[in-house]
Simulated assay, not measured.
Amino acid sequence: MISSAPSAPLSQPRPPEVVELAQALIRTRQTILPKRLAEPGPDAAQTQLILSAAADAPDHHELLPWRFVQVTASARARLGQAFAAALLERDAQALPEQIEQAREKAFRAPLLWLAVVRLRDDDADIEPHERIVSAGCAIQNMLLMAHALGFGAALTSGKALASRSLRALFDLAPDEQALCFINVGTVIKAKPPRARPAVARYLSVL
């Protein structure tokens, strides 16, 4: 027999302190550029917490269309070489100091991941933009967890992400796209909070 008793609501009001904590985390998170991040980075347990936060992102059809590649200390030199090669792909006349600046970007943040999204596979129902949105949600979860743990973080990108050298280094498949690097570390120099846009600037009513 099917019970006629009303089912419990799927959503329950959260205690005010939970709402306030979520609001505080979201509103106080800042982008801290890699040059302002230093050791110590997250330890192994904290790193797992940050990565685990990504698993709670929306994922239509549960495709897991994104992944993260951690760039260890021993791999930073190879990443620096890929950055230098990417610059030379775009500008064969790049000066030695410009090449060195490109290479140096690989050595800044203590913890570094490359975010990769799989744009297409056997499931044609999930369009590339949905997969990118899912990846973005996963990344935001990671940023908020890093912030909750007391670390600074930033997303960095640039033309090097589409270069042959970087795609080869990270062994990207033809249907994969490098979205950005996620940089995490201890904040050595904060910055004033930026003004957030008012809701009226990005909300309309149909």
Rank of each mutant, 00 (worst) to 15 (best):
191 K>Y: 13
168 A>Y: 03
137 C>K: 04
112 L>K: 00
43 D>F: 00
100 E>I: 14
5 A>K: 13
107 F>W: 04
114 L>E: 08
95 L>D: 11
115 A>T: 04
122 D>R: 12
154 A>F: 02
62 E>S: 12
158 G>F: 06
155 L>C: 14
131 R>A: 03
199 V>W: 07
34 P>D: 02
82 A>R: 03
189 K>I: 01
163 S>M: 04
68 F>R: 05
197 P>G: 02
93 Q>K: 10
137 C>F: 06
87 L>N: 00
23 Q>F: 14
98 Q>H: 12
60 H>G: 10
44 A>T: 14
36 R>P: 07
37 L>S: 03
57 A>Q: 06
121 D>I: 01
42 P>Q: 07
72 T>R: 14
171 D>M: 13
16 P>S: 15
25 L>E: 08
59 D>R: 06
180 C>E: 01
162 A>M: 08
145 M>P: 01
125 D>R: 12
156 T>Y: 04
71 V>F: 02
178 A>W: 10
201 R>M: 14
127 E>H: 11
120 R>Y: 04
182 I>W: 03
152 G>I: 07
3 S>W: 00
178 A>S: 11
21 L>H: 14
103 R>G: 03
204 S>R: 11
24 A>D: 08
40 P>F: 05
130 E>A: 13
52 S>V: 04
27 R>M: 15
37 L>G: 08
84 A>M: 10
7 S>T: 14
135 A>G: 09
43 D>W: 00
89 E>K: 02
45 A>G: 09
154 A>C: 15
160 A>Y: 04
97 E>R: 09
26 I>E: 12
55 A>S: 11
91 D>W: 04
15 P>C: 10
64 L>V: 13
150 G>E: 03
184 V>L: 08
198 A>T: 12
107 F>G: 08
99 I>H: 01
136 G>E: 08
163 S>G: 06
166 L>W: 07
111 L>W: 01
109 A>R: 03
17 E>C: 03
21 L>T: 15
20 E>V: 06
19 V>W: 10
139 I>H: 04
71 V>A: 03
162 A>P: 08
94 A>G: 05
21 L>G: 11
18 V>H: 15
84 A>L: 10
158 G>L: 04
10 L>S: 12
109 A>V: 08
28 T>E: 15
153 A>G: 07
56 D>Q: 13
91 D>F: 09
140 Q>M: 12
134 S>L: 05
36 R>L: 15
90 R>P: 00
153 A>M: 02
47 T>A: 10
47 T>L: 06
19 V>S: 13
93 Q>P: 00
147 H>C: 09
